[in-house]
Simulated scan of single mutants.
Amino acid sequence: MISGFSRSCAARLLAGAALITTAACGAGSANTAAEGGKPEVVAAFYPLQWLTEQVGGSDVQVTSLTAPGVEPHDLELGIQQVTAIRNAALTVYVKGVQPAVDDAVEPDTSFDAATAVKTIPAGEPAGEPAGEHAEEHAEEGAGEHAEEGAEEHGHEVAYDPHLWLDPSRLATVATKLGERLAAADAPHAKAYQDRAARTAAALGALDQELAKGLGTCETRTLVTAHEAFGYLADRYKLKQVGITLDPETEPSPTRISEVAKLAKSEGVTTIFTETLVSPKVAEVLASQVGAKTAVLDPLESKPSGDYLSAMRDNLKTLQTALGCTA
């Protein structure tokens, strides 16, 4: 893990940074790179890469720190990646997902997507609706359970960072990202704002599809490999029950037994696995419950299509598993 990485204004200039921000150098508005080069924007992992490409369009050069098929939570930064962050006009990330990135970015040239939306506590207790629990802890300052969950998950935050699984929240992030890019690159400000508006509209349409498609279901309990779907559950009034809090944690036999009991009592017919996590534990649980398994993509890595198509695939999977009728 890279920690405490400092960058002076002179270092940015020598490295050929795409933009020079007011806060970083005490100068005027940001300027594009020399010789008409595009501003370089670094995205921490896939959903943010997709969003940045949509909003930035042809006016920026977007690169991702996390290669396809790599678990974002496990990312360790190499020299090349640290250099990319150092030289970037902007790094788009979510604090709490990747500690190495949290340590490497600097406020003047980074955008934490979690600052743009209302977050929910990490580690929702099994059997409790995400929305209700989120409201309770919002009043209590996130609460003891959220703090414990954050510590167990290896995060330095008391909230669930998987905010991209709620399209309505991601639409808000798109708008804020457009504002950030417009302020940094004034000549292309309107283009950023227009693309941000179109992206937010597309995400709003997806949100409506999910709300309609998950409106009436035989069961609303979502048993997942780990607790990555809190925002989806919160938005669409589902109840997330994670076998583990994070993909690196091996569940105890007691935990598996608890989840199996709850799944049986609530008529769960499907245990959800993930694209980057071994399905073995979920398969063991499914055998105990008499259920089947299905893949629900947390979109932590690039899918076969894009963010929108993958979320629509998730909707179809959920409708089948939960017995939903649109």
Rank of each mutant, 00 (worst) to 15 (best):
G204Q: 10
E53K: 05
Q240L: 02
A24S: 12
E148D: 08
E250S: 06
S257Q: 12
K38W: 01
E139R: 15
S110T: 05
A142F: 05
A321M: 03
A30N: 12
E53M: 06
A134N: 11
A150M: 08
L51C: 01
T21G: 10
D194V: 06
A15G: 11
D102I: 06
I2G: 10
D234N: 07
E250M: 09
L75V: 13
Q80L: 01
E140P: 03
T219K: 06
T293R: 05
E71D: 09
E53H: 02
L181P: 12
A225C: 03
E136T: 15
Q80E: 12
E266L: 04
K280M: 03
D297R: 00
Y236S: 05
L315W: 01
A200K: 11
T52D: 07
G56Q: 03
T32F: 03
G215E: 09
D103P: 03
D207Y: 02
V295G: 07
Y192A: 09
G305F: 00
P121I: 00
Q61T: 08
D103Q: 09
T91H: 07
E156D: 15
R195E: 05
L322W: 01
E128Y: 04
T269L: 00
K302V: 10
D108M: 05
A17D: 13
I79M: 12
L65G: 02
Y159S: 00
Q319M: 05
L51D: 08
A15N: 07
L77E: 11
S64C: 14
F45I: 08
A146D: 10
F229H: 12
